[in-house]
Amino acid sequence: MTDKDFSKDILQQIKEKQITPKPKWEFLLKDSAVWTAGIVSLVVGGITMSVIIHLYRFDDLETLTETGGNTVQTILILLPYFWIAVLGVFVLVAHYNLKHTKNGYKYKVSHITIATVLISAALGVLFYDTGLGRAIDHVLSNRMPTYDRYAHPWAKVWSNPDQGRIAGTVVRVIDQNHFELKDFHERVWIVYTSNTLPQPLQRTPRPVKVRCRGQAVQDRTFQAIRIMPWIPKHQPIMKFRMEGEREATPQTY
């Protein structure tokens, strides 16, 4: 095949160019970085999943289906696409990193994908039960002005005055029966109710977000039958239900 002895040339080259073996810590660092990135992506994926569960455990689904559209359509509308896309990104990152660990090549792509999705889902349930999903949704809803409009699946459903649903921020309480609401399209509505407004709304310690069922009576005026918090209370999945305890019902103020 070859009469040439490469060892002399190569050793000569190594000496001349002062080539040295890379230190062991460099390889350990690389391995640890890949694992860390994979685990962090799984945890972030789990957190994202907890927001998805929170958004999809929307207990007002029944009311929404009463208003027209069929259940499948409503379910599709309510899917939190933004968060599903975020989850997809982190599952991909986790998948990429796990595949590039020392032994990652041994596993099929489909197996790693299923494992990352399942781990994210399991972490998602755990995080959701601690209330993390709701907390993240709440923070983003309050801190990012465009979050509700573009990333919140309920915003589209609750920005429909013609079908008796509006939502947004209570900007001013006028009196016991009236308040001003700025919806997600920056339109200001006068909302009135025949009942006295609930206490939390009257006190308005800070801008409060609500959703209202009722009907639009004239331009920018809405008569509310029910006023509910924009983000419902947290309902753990794994909570033990005591004997006689009732199922969760749609929350109102």
């Binding site: 190569i10 080259q13 073996p21 890379k22 062991k24």
Partner: peptide, 24 residues
């Protein structure tokens, strides 16, 4: 070509030497 293969071979051995600590 054999000459090209020999170049690759030399580069390979240099890489092997540089990565000796990464051998599992």
């Amino acid at each position: 070509k054999k000459e090209d293969a020999e170049d690759i071979l030399q580069d390979t051995f240099i890489k092997v030497y540089q990565n000796l600590n990464g051998f599992d």
